[in-house]
Simulated scan of single mutants.
Amino acid sequence: MHEIHAREVLEKLKLMGAGRVLIQSPEGLRREAEVLGNFLEDNGIEVILHGEVNYGACDPADREAKSLGCDALIHLGHSYMKLHLEVPTIFVPAFADVEVVPALEKNLKEIKKLGKKIALVTTAQHIHQLEKAREFLENNGFEVLIGRGDSRVSWPGQVLGCNFSAARVNAEGVLFIGAGYFHPLGVAVATRKPTLAINPYSGDAIWMNDEAERLIRKRWAQIAKAMDARSFGVVTSTKKGQLRLAEAKRIVRLLREHGKEAKLLLMNHISYPQLEGFSFDAYVVVACPRVPIDDYENWRKPVLTPREVEMLLGLREEYEFDEILGVERSEDEPMGISIHGG
């Protein structure tokens, strides 16, 4: 279960004078969206539920909210991301109702293998438990570093699937708290440091570095498959947090300068079946960095990231994870803003 602060959302909507809202949620939070919608309707606000797949804070449904005449968008399950939105938007994180310290206590011997000086990171679902985790680890002799991250993340210690700036601190290893492989695998590839993922639900601990090396070998294989490609489709996204038009144009220029044919393509949801009709030999995805990484097996033709194009062209030797980075924060810049747009 996830904790949603419904009354706080209602208070913000009333301050905004909102009479109609669109609630957008990822698939795992559909029930929470229904509960929140019922609560708001009981308090006099008209609610429309958004049923499309949602990929994160980078994929807000503000255009849809505006077209429906909504006064606000409620973006459920993700933290604030600085974007130019068309309606006022409330980002409502969903905090997981699970304690993280018992899983840390269970795996203390494994954590010690990271070294004495460790970076501590997690996702928005467990960010409210990060200080408890730090206190436990420091009481057990660790020096714990929680990176501030750049402007794309809301809280110190938070990582996204496309941004690991909070993990880039001067530590011996990285401890990730959360479920699944998606985020810790990115941490391990991006930092190239020993990375241990601890699942607070199951209590399991998994070392990610072998998985990271396997992933990097697979990516080099994709680069090798693209060596003979003469024409490239360079794909960017209309999703506001993934629209990297300047970077996409740079990749088109770079390919052309090296004797390749390149065309810029624009999509919303990027998937290979929608591209089958084109004749390109290979593709470059300049949108969510995880599309070519996590979905490459669904592509019949080679699919690369911008960094991998540079490797293909001999401009970069070491493998580097593609990320969407923000700007560095000043020390006094506020974090965790929850309403934006309009």
Rank of each mutant, 00 (worst) to 15 (best):
328 E>N: 14
295 D>S: 05
339 I>N: 07
307 R>H: 11
330 S>N: 08
310 E>L: 11
336 G>T: 00
328 E>G: 15
330 S>D: 10
319 Y>W: 14
302 P>Y: 12
336 G>A: 00
334 P>R: 02
293 I>N: 04
329 R>D: 03
317 E>I: 02
334 P>V: 06
330 S>G: 14
314 G>Q: 04
334 P>M: 04
339 I>W: 14
307 R>A: 13
335 M>I: 10
306 P>K: 05
317 E>S: 14
332 D>V: 12
301 K>M: 08
298 N>Q: 13
308 E>Y: 08
320 E>F: 06
338 S>L: 04
327 V>E: 15
336 G>K: 00
295 D>E: 14
293 I>R: 06
300 R>E: 10
337 I>Y: 11
315 L>K: 15
321 F>G: 00
318 E>G: 05
327 V>W: 11
323 E>C: 11
334 P>K: 04
314 G>F: 06
313 L>G: 00
307 R>M: 12
293 I>H: 01
312 L>E: 10
314 G>R: 05
299 W>Y: 08
337 I>L: 15
338 S>R: 11
307 R>Q: 13
315 L>G: 01
293 I>P: 02
315 L>Q: 04
300 R>G: 10
297 E>V: 13
315 L>S: 03
310 E>P: 15
296 Y>G: 02
300 R>Q: 09
337 I>A: 15
308 E>P: 01
323 E>R: 13
340 H>W: 06
302 P>D: 07
339 I>G: 02
333 E>G: 02
302 P>Q: 12
336 G>R: 02
311 M>R: 14
323 E>L: 09
298 N>T: 13
311 M>I: 15
316 R>M: 11
295 D>G: 03
335 M>E: 15
335 M>T: 14
328 E>Q: 14
315 L>W: 03
324 I>Q: 03
317 E>C: 01
340 H>A: 08
310 E>G: 12
331 E>W: 07
330 S>H: 08
305 T>H: 07
328 E>A: 14
328 E>D: 15
299 W>K: 11
296 Y>L: 02
305 T>C: 04
300 R>P: 00
336 G>W: 02
334 P>T: 01
325 L>M: 10
331 E>S: 12
303 V>H: 01
320 E>M: 13
303 V>D: 01
325 L>C: 04
326 G>S: 05
314 G>T: 04
299 W>E: 06
318 E>N: 10
322 D>C: 05
306 P>S: 04
338 S>T: 07
336 G>M: 01
320 E>T: 14
303 V>K: 00
336 G>I: 00
306 P>M: 07
332 D>P: 03
317 E>W: 10
329 R>I: 01
335 M>Y: 07
322 D>Y: 12
320 E>Q: 14
331 E>K: 13
306 P>Q: 02
337 I>M: 13
339 I>Y: 06
